[in-house]
Amino acid sequence: HITLTNLITEETTHVVMKTDAEFVCERTLKYFLGIAGGKWVVSYFWVTQSIKERKMLNEHDFEVRGDVVNGRNHQGPKRARESQDRKIFRGLEICCYGPFTNMPTDQLEWMVQLCGASVVKELSSFTLGTGVHPIVVVQPDAWTEDNGFHAIGQMCEAPVVTREWVLDSVALYQCQELDTYLIPQIPHSHY
Results as ranks from 00 to 15, higher is better:
residue 96 C to T: 07
residue 74 H to F: 00
residue 21 A to H: 06
residue 84 Q to T: 14
residue 185 Q to S: 14
residue 139 Q to L: 05
residue 80 A to Y: 13
residue 121 K to H: 15
residue 2 I to H: 11
residue 130 T to P: 15
residue 61 D to P: 13
residue 173 Y to F: 07
residue 35 I to R: 00
residue 66 G to V: 00
residue 139 Q to A: 12
residue 122 E to W: 05
residue 19 T to G: 00
residue 23 F to L: 06
residue 121 K to T: 06
residue 1 H to S: 07
residue 36 A to V: 13
residue 2 I to G: 12
residue 66 G to L: 00
residue 67 D to G: 00
residue 110 W to L: 06
residue 32 F to L: 00
residue 144 T to S: 09
residue 9 T to E: 13
residue 20 D to Y: 02
residue 167 L to P: 02
residue 93 E to L: 08
residue 69 V to S: 05
residue 163 R to L: 05
residue 81 R to T: 01
residue 42 V to C: 08
residue 64 V to P: 01
residue 37 G to S: 10
residue 38 G to Y: 05
residue 108 L to A: 03
residue 10 E to P: 07
residue 140 P to L: 14
residue 7 L to W: 13
residue 174 Q to V: 06
residue 178 L to M: 06
residue 61 D to L: 10
residue 123 L to S: 15
residue 171 A to V: 09
residue 2 I to P: 01
residue 54 R to F: 05
residue 159 P to A: 14
residue 130 T to K: 07
residue 35 I to S: 04
residue 67 D to F: 00
residue 154 Q to R: 09
residue 180 T to K: 05
residue 51 I to F: 10
residue 141 D to G: 03
residue 21 A to S: 14
residue 160 V to L: 08
residue 42 V to I: 13
residue 74 H to I: 11
residue 74 H to L: 07
residue 59 E to S: 06
residue 172 L to V: 09
residue 122 E to V: 15
residue 41 V to W: 01
residue 190 H to V: 02
residue 110 W to S: 10
residue 98 G to R: 04
residue 77 P to L: 02
residue 64 V to A: 05
residue 118 S to L: 11
residue 111 M to N: 00
residue 97 Y to Q: 10
residue 72 R to G: 13
residue 189 S to R: 09
residue 89 F to P: 02
residue 74 H to C: 07
residue 106 D to E: 11
residue 55 K to L: 15
residue 160 V to Q: 14
residue 149 F to W: 15
residue 95 C to H: 11
residue 79 R to V: 12
residue 11 E to N: 02
residue 186 I to M: 08
residue 110 W to M: 13
residue 185 Q to Y: 04
residue 45 F to W: 07
residue 146 D to A: 15
residue 79 R to S: 04
residue 188 H to Y: 10
residue 88 I to Y: 01
residue 175 C to R: 15
residue 95 C to Y: 12
residue 43 S to I: 00
residue 190 H to M: 12
residue 133 H to P: 08
residue 141 D to A: 08
residue 186 I to P: 12
residue 12 T to A: 02
residue 39 K to N: 04
residue 153 G to A: 08
residue 110 W to Q: 10
residue 62 F to I: 00
residue 47 V to A: 12
residue 70 N to I: 03
residue 41 V to R: 01
residue 121 K to N: 13
residue 187 P to H: 15
residue 11 E to S: 09
residue 36 A to Q: 00
residue 191 Y to A: 13
residue 119 V to A: 12
residue 61 D to S: 08
residue 121 K to Q: 15
residue 10 E to L: 11
residue 71 G to P: 07
residue 18 K to V: 03
residue 41 V to P: 00
residue 163 R to G: 04
residue 112 V to L: 10
residue 72 R to K: 06
residue 90 R to I: 00
residue 98 G to S: 09
residue 139 Q to S: 13
residue 87 K to I: 05
residue 96 C to A: 01
residue 20 D to L: 02
residue 82 E to A: 12
residue 177 E to G: 15
residue 29 L to I: 09
residue 68 V to D: 11
residue 8 I to R: 01
residue 168 D to A: 01
residue 25 C to L: 01
residue 23 F to D: 00
residue 70 N to V: 10
residue 119 V to L: 09
residue 57 L to Y: 06
residue 122 E to Q: 12
residue 97 Y to E: 06
residue 173 Y to W: 08
residue 86 R to I: 07
residue 180 T to M: 06
residue 134 P to Q: 06
residue 125 S to P: 09
residue 95 C to A: 14
residue 114 L to P: 03
residue 28 T to Y: 03
residue 4 L to R: 02
residue 3 T to I: 11
residue 41 V to T: 06
residue 41 V to S: 00
residue 67 D to A: 00
residue 124 S to L: 06
residue 69 V to Y: 05
residue 13 T to S: 07
residue 5 T to L: 14
residue 114 L to F: 07
residue 136 V to Q: 04
residue 181 Y to F: 08
residue 108 L to K: 01
residue 127 T to R: 10
residue 155 M to K: 02
residue 73 N to S: 06
residue 46 W to N: 00
residue 191 Y to L: 08
residue 91 G to I: 01
residue 70 N to R: 12
residue 1 H to R: 09
residue 165 W to Q: 01
residue 149 F to V: 10
residue 182 L to R: 10
residue 78 K to P: 03
residue 55 K to Y: 13
residue 110 W to K: 14
residue 189 S to L: 10
residue 176 Q to K: 10
residue 131 G to R: 01
residue 152 I to V: 10
residue 59 E to F: 10
residue 45 F to P: 03
residue 11 E to Q: 11
residue 143 W to S: 09
residue 17 M to R: 00
residue 80 A to L: 00
residue 21 A to E: 09
residue 88 I to P: 04
residue 182 L to H: 11
residue 39 K to D: 01
residue 108 L to E: 02
residue 59 E to G: 07
residue 93 E to V: 07
residue 138 V to T: 11
residue 166 V to R: 02
residue 41 V to L: 10
residue 31 Y to Q: 00
residue 135 I to V: 12
residue 78 K to V: 03
residue 144 T to M: 13
residue 122 E to R: 15
residue 143 W to R: 06
residue 119 V to Q: 11
residue 123 L to I: 10
residue 174 Q to G: 14
residue 15 V to T: 02
residue 40 W to H: 02
residue 73 N to I: 12
residue 16 V to L: 14
residue 139 Q to T: 08
residue 1 H to W: 14
residue 69 V to F: 00
residue 138 V to Q: 05
residue 77 P to S: 06
residue 42 V to R: 04
residue 171 A to T: 07
residue 153 G to Q: 08
residue 176 Q to L: 14
residue 42 V to W: 00
residue 3 T to P: 12
residue 46 W to P: 02
residue 122 E to G: 13
residue 171 A to P: 11
residue 86 R to T: 10
residue 153 G to C: 02
residue 133 H to E: 12
residue 67 D to L: 00
residue 156 C to R: 15
residue 98 G to M: 02
residue 120 V to S: 11
residue 4 L to C: 14
residue 140 P to T: 02
residue 189 S to K: 05
residue 132 V to G: 05
residue 127 T to I: 13
residue 98 G to L: 02
residue 153 G to T: 05
residue 159 P to S: 12
residue 150 H to L: 11
residue 61 D to T: 12
residue 113 Q to R: 11
residue 167 L to Q: 04
residue 123 L to P: 12
residue 90 R to L: 11
residue 155 M to A: 09
residue 186 I to G: 11
residue 165 W to V: 02
residue 20 D to R: 02
residue 17 M to F: 00
residue 123 L to R: 14
residue 139 Q to R: 01
residue 73 N to V: 03
residue 189 S to V: 08
residue 81 R to Y: 00
residue 25 C to T: 06
residue 92 L to R: 13
residue 185 Q to F: 05
residue 170 V to G: 03
residue 185 Q to G: 11
residue 72 R to E: 11
residue 5 T to H: 08
residue 8 I to E: 03
residue 96 C to M: 11
residue 125 S to L: 06
residue 189 S to Y: 07
residue 111 M to T: 04
residue 90 R to T: 07
residue 45 F to G: 06
residue 92 L to M: 10
residue 114 L to M: 10
residue 122 E to D: 14
